[in-house]
Design a protein around this nucleic acid. Structure first.
Lengths: 224, 224
DNA sequence: CGTCTTCTTGAGCCACTTCAAGGTAAGTGG
DNA sequence: CCACTTACCTTGAAGTGGCTCAAGAAGACG
């Protein structure tokens, strides 16, 4: 882990290549889907419920999570505009999903998708590719959870920055608590670590959820 | 977390229902595969290498893992007899795999499998199902990593016990270091926690890797 | 403006790590 | 069969990173 000293000089900004959402699953004419709105903190589906639909985020963002018996929560991941989610292979959802902010989501009947996949090899392949990508992301997340608090937050920022395709300014849709539960930390540690990064001039806060990356090279270096 | 007191009384043993390996992917006549032997600690494939094959464990066991730049290792999972692994959807393996002990492994060419999947919808479905199952397992693993040391080890024991389909006696194929790297702990903490479980009469050691579950109910309860 | 939620900061604590040493088991060669 | 080696595991003592508990600051909103 890289030691931070408050108030080091910051270099000029640096752009990151964008990330393309390559999957055309919902573009198939048979899988048009129904758009639907969800308010802030509204549950889209719950763990253990029958998996009736698969989903694509049109606008807004979504968190999927699991909770332990005593209330500890693990945010499995965040789904941003363009992301698809809810692709459990079993008949029941293995985690819950909630709207982080008001959002619009496209719903496609799971059975419809599976039927189309039986005939259309491209759809079947997309289904697999999509799941495999999520698997890879889950493995990355496991790597995250063995790192230090600072490394976790840095990796999180880099991941979100890449997925939002914004150059150096991030608008985090999620709360500190969501971030903490995603990174396996407490809200206090997340807050303190953000403050450290800010004091080291690696990032700067325009507001508590609006971040400017002042030193992208440093941020990348801190990711190891 | 459940507090352990050394030397509580233990109840009688209790059987666990077996776990069936449901996937018939390698039974397809076109996907016969080639058996191959790997010695202890021999690498089967490395992270970043071209994914030429997919694998099925015939005997022995395998660990798949990723390492960070500074050497920290995360054991993503263990593959026991009957398990299939190496199903990355990309052309390169996203993690490494090594034989834990001497083992025999069935290899099937990835391209062959993908070709068959293009024509045979059952194979395509298996491919998806298998990946989705691994995804679910990866999510479970994330849950593991937010728990206490004792909970992690208990969950690990329950998982292995179920997958080995042995009633109350486990023969762990992996070292303490492997377990530690799987659970995000140090080898010392794993050892100490094993000792606690033993002192509480939840388990008993026949040898350092041979464990008898003396109190399955307690073990299950400790898992939350 | 007050109220509510979210975020930040401080001080003390604890679970797990680190560092260090010793024990145990299996293999090897004499 | 025993000395020696090596790998693996256990145990102890001290340190620490992140947690808990507590209070206050900063926004959001009616």
């Amino acid at each position: 882990m890289i030691q931070l000293k408050p108030a080091s000089k910051s270099g000029p900004g640096q752009a990151k290549p964008g990330h393309v959402n390559h999957d055309a699953l919902f573009d198939c004419p048979e899988l048009h889907g129904v758009p639907m709105s969800f308010g802030r903190n509204v549950e889209i589906y719950g763990e253990g419920e029958p998996a009736a639909y698969v989903y694509k985020v049109l606008s807004g963002s979504v968190r999927s999570y699991k909770v332990l018996g005593d209330g500890r929560r693990q945010v499995i991941g965040f789904h941003l505009a363009g992301d698809m989610f809810g692709f459990d292979c079993e008949a029941e959802h293995s985690c819950s999903a909630e709207a982080i902010a008001d959002c619009q989501i496209l719903l496609v009947r799971r059975t419809t998708l599976l039927n189309v996949a039986e005939r259309d090899i491209d759809v079947a392949r997309s289904l697999w590719t999509l799941t495999a990508t999520q698997l890879k992301r889950a493995h990355e997340h496991s790597m995250l959870l063995i790192k230090t608090a600072q490394e976790r937050l840095v990796a999180f920022l880099l991941d979100i920055a890449q997925r939002l395709s914004t150059k150096n300014e991030l608008d985090l849709p999620m709360s500190r608590q969501d971030i903490a539960d995603h990174l396996g930390l407490t809200i206090e540690t997340v807050s303190r670590t953000f403050t450290q990064l800010s004091e080291a001039s690696v990032i700067r806060f325009l507001a508590s959820r609006r971040i400017v990356v002042r030193n992208p090279a440093m941020l990348a270096e801190m990711n190891g």
